[in-house]
């Protein structure tokens, strides 16, 4: 059993390193496509963390939606606008450091407070098995309103996209 534990620990830290590396690449890369790829690596790392935590469904959704949809849209956007060797900016230099630093600190503080206040269930006393059925029940019974509101939001986005495209044609 000990070998299993070591293997799973190693995989966990590999995934964390992968996620952080992707994030760093997304921020620091000088070619825009490398940033997008870094973001894709981060998405993959998060999907792997879901897998590590035992929720295959969430990890599949992460890959389908973030890599398969959002990643592709980002790649498409970059593809149309840039040639492969084009460097976006020689040196990434902050224009609004004074604004950026407090924003980052505020975001960090918000996350820190949220993490600190949540009561985390430890792994052995996890009640839910996160299987497909329980996710479906949670979405359609406990969080029905949020689920429906999200679909309304998506509908608005679709209608908005159609309006934007149509108005440019005239």
């Amino acid at each position: 059993m000990i070998v299993y534990q070591y293997v799973s620990e190693v995989f966990f830290f590999l995934l964390v390193v992968l996620t952080l590396f992707g994030g760093l690449l997304a921020v620091k890369a000088r070619v825009l496509m490398h940033s997008v790829l870094g973001l894709a690596v981060t998405f993959l790392g998060v999907a792997g963390l879901y897998l590590y935590l035992g929720s295959i469904f969430l990890s599949m959704m992460q890959i389908l939606i973030y890599l398969g949809a959002i990643g592709i849209v980002l790649v498409f956007g970059v593809m149309v606008g840039y040639t492969p060797r084009q460097v976006v900016e020689e040196k990434i230099r902050g224009e609004n450091v004074l604004l950026a630093v407090p924003t980052c600190l505020a975001g960090f503080a918000m996350l820190w407070i949220a993490i600190g206040r949540t009561e985390w269930a430890s792994a052995p006393e996890r009640i839910n098995d996160f299987a497909l059925k329980s996710v479906g029940k949670a979405l359609l019974y406990d969080f029905c309103l949020a689920f429906e509101l999200i679909s309304v939001l998506l509908l608005i986005a679709v209608v908005g996209a159609i309006i934007v495209v149509n108005s440019q044609e005239d």
């Binding site: 496509m33 295959i56 599949m60 959704m61 890959i63 890599l67 398969g68 592709i72 593809m79 497909l132």
Partner: peptide, 20 residues
């Protein structure tokens, strides 16, 4: 229990490769 979604998610990688 999500085998079908698993296959469809893996197929979606191909698009990114073709793009890049």
């Amino acid at each position: 229990d999500v085998g079908l979604l698993f296959i469809i998610a893996m197929i979606s990688f191909n698009t990114i490769a073709v793009f890049l």
